[in-house]
């Protein structure tokens, strides 16, 4: 009677695009920047979307309202945390100093519900193996540890050694998958004739032979061809395959 396959397909389309629209509206926060609450909230929204697609024992509408409700509340909280500094601190928490001048601040650590073992792991992940080298370690709201080492343990910079350095600038993509990106060429004040000339100098007849090309900060052209002409020396596989 009821055609479950078609119903699920229609619900998948509804769920997928609703999720896509609302996640785009909720901004471009990276997974690494999410707080613990954001993370759990994301899982909940995903779970409701999955149920909307596959649970035919309830109306699609009820799940959809749940999904939209979570998305709207998340958006509302985002707005509040941006507009109101105090509420932002209450809702998101704030960075907490957990090590100062090599001493662990146990009270702050307990407030963050972090064990000393976990703190040491995070410290090692920041390539600090000696706690006495730490001037400040701050536990960020996304669960990451920011570490400021004491000045005597910091690596020497070009400035310290008074070595002159020029700004390196940015590289610009000019060919991707054989297609010339004219807008980027114009940005670097170049034209197709210049590009063709550069490609010919690299032994390339047509743009279609190029997988990727960049104008480097120094104005030179980096070209990667589809035909890489690489021998088997770089093949890291230790099985025949196929797999």
């Amino acid at each position: 009677m009821i055609d479950e396959t078609i119903v699920v397909i229609v619900r998948v389309v509804i769920s997928f695009f609703t999720l896509l629209i609302f996640t785009r509206l909720l901004g471009k926060q990276e997974v690494g920047q999410l707080t613990f609450f954001d993370y759990i909230n994301g899982i909940t929204i995903g779970s409701i979307a999955a149920t909307l697609a596959t649970d035919l024992s309830a109306r699609a509408w009820t799940h959809w309202v749940g999904l939209v409700g979570y998305a709207l509340l998340t958006g509302l909280l985002q707005y509040i945390t941006i507009k109101n500094r105090y509420l932002g601190k209450v809702l998101d928490g704030e960075p907490t100093v957990v090590i100062e001048d090599g001493k662990i601040l146990e009270k702050n650590l307990n407030q963050m519900r972090v064990k000393i073992g976990e703190l040491m792991t995070l410290l090692r992940a920041q390539k600090v193996f000696d706690i006495t080298q730490v001037e400040y370690a701050i536990f960020e709201i996304n669960g990451e540890l920011s570490v400021k080492q004491k000045a005597e343990y910091l690596p020497v910079t070009r400035k310290d050694l008074q070595i002159p350095s020029a700004s390196s600038g940015l590289a610009t993509e000019v060919i991707q998958d054989g297609i010339v990106i004219e807008q980027n060429l114009q940005q670097r004040k170049k034209d197709k004739a210049w590009l063709r000339q550069q490609l010919q100098a690299n032994g390339i007849e047509k743009e279609k032979q190029v997988a990727y090309a960049l104008i480097l900060p120094n104005g030179k052209l980096y070209v990667d061809k589809f035909d890489d002409q690489i021998g088997k020396e770089a093949d890291m596989s230790d099985y025949e395959g196929p797999y």
Binding site: M1, I2, D3, E4, I6, R11, S57, R59, A60
Partner: peptide
């Protein structure tokens, strides 16, 4: 009923139709 179900199955829960 079979004809109606085909049209309304996207907005009504399966259990109710059954």
């Amino acid at each position: 009923w079979k004809k109606v179900v085909r049209r309304i199955q996207f907005s009504v829960e399966r259990e109710y139709l059954l």
